[in-house]
Write a protein that binds this DNA or RNA. Structure first.
Lengths: 185, 185
DNA sequence: CTCCAATGTATCCACTGGATGCTTTCTGGC
DNA sequence: GCCAGAAAGCATCCAGTGGATACATTGGAG
């Protein structure tokens, strides 16, 4: 083949970025467990093996999508101006992107440890939490612990809500519940 | 083939149970993502397709292993005589069976909802928590919320510890941290 | 202009979960 | 006691997957 049009064939330009976007779309639709490199490659119009020039393996692509999502989450959290809104923003992000949130929370243990850029993206969110939950009358260690507790409550609560273990009538009830838990954390 | 020895061939006796055991062993060694029906079948000495007589699909096998693990967890929790020991037992179980615990917490959202026996197994643990954390001066609804908070803290804390986000020096520190968090929950 | 390192392609492989159709064994109603 | 039907296991097939190796095309640096 190799259509000799010259223009815009072969060299893709931004395969990495488009692959991440296509992967995210696929995950939104069918979950991250079902992600297939071949389908992503097809969606972008490229041989499936070409993705390996940009991602070491399937896991690396998933990590890249997750990383991007953590950055997006942090951006939304940045707009929150108080604790209540922080909780609402966090829960809102999770509930409106369930498949993506599932990906973020289920990265294999160890991925975080060996993927510095991913860990950095996660910490963007923690930083936002610190901005709102830290209090001057506490030591920085105490503040850090308090913030971790808040995040644990949100993360854990969302996971159990998604699993149906935490049975609450609807999403608003979840927000209310988590707000209360966080308030006296 | 069909060696005509008559004795102890063909009918397996307890394929389901042995398959679950073999699957658990495989998960302990290589994680649940890597579980292969064929390897399980080989380990038990059976055609891979035979497993489908006992499990609808791969997910069902994973769910069965998870269910068994939840029952085992509840059994260990039953021995706890106070809140501190409860936390220690919970964390101890998670840390000494990391691969199994990862399986338990990462069942696809929805598995719980449509698998009643699995959900029942989960509630065994919740019942144990209620036994220790409920207080007579609180309404049953309040007690239920308090207990859920405890479980959320444990579950979420363990997940974040495993991911390396919650950076603590060692397992004892984690137990101490979670005990403190749960204490003033 | 030429050479080279990226980037993308073509083709192969072992392996996976799952489907179909068959045989063997067990068991409960007569 | 027997025998029909259900349950359990087997052999064989399939499409799809992630990954490996070897090659083609390209844009840029010298």
């Amino acid at each position: 083949m190799t259509s000799r049009t010259g223009r815009d064939t072969y060299r893709h330009g931004n395969l990495r970025g488009e692959a991440i976007a296509a992967a995210r779309a696929s995950i939104v639709e069918s979950g991250h467990e079902a992600l297939s490199l071949r389908r992503v490659a097809d969606a972008v119009g490229v041989a499936h093996r070409s993705l390996y020039n940009h991602f070491e393996d399937r896991e690396a692509l998933l990590d890249a999508v997750a990383e991007e999502a953590f950055v997006a989450l942090a951006a939304e959290l940045k707009a929150a101006t108080d604790a209540g809104r922080f909780v609402a923003a966090y829960v809102g992000f999770a509930l409106s992107n369930p498949a993506i949130f599932a990906l973020m929370t289920s990265r294999p243990h160890g991925a975080m440890k060996k993927r510095p850029s991913l860990q950095r993206a996660v910490h963007l969110g923690i930083t936002e939490a610190l901005r709102l939950f830290a209090r001057p009358d506490r030591s920085s260690a105490e503040n850090r612990r308090a913030v971790m507790k808040v995040i644990i409550l949100l993360q854990g609560g969302l996971a159990m809500y998604a699993d149906g273990i935490l049975d609450l009538p609807d999403d608003e009830a979840l927000v209310a519940e988590l707000r209360a838990m966080v308030a006296d954390a």
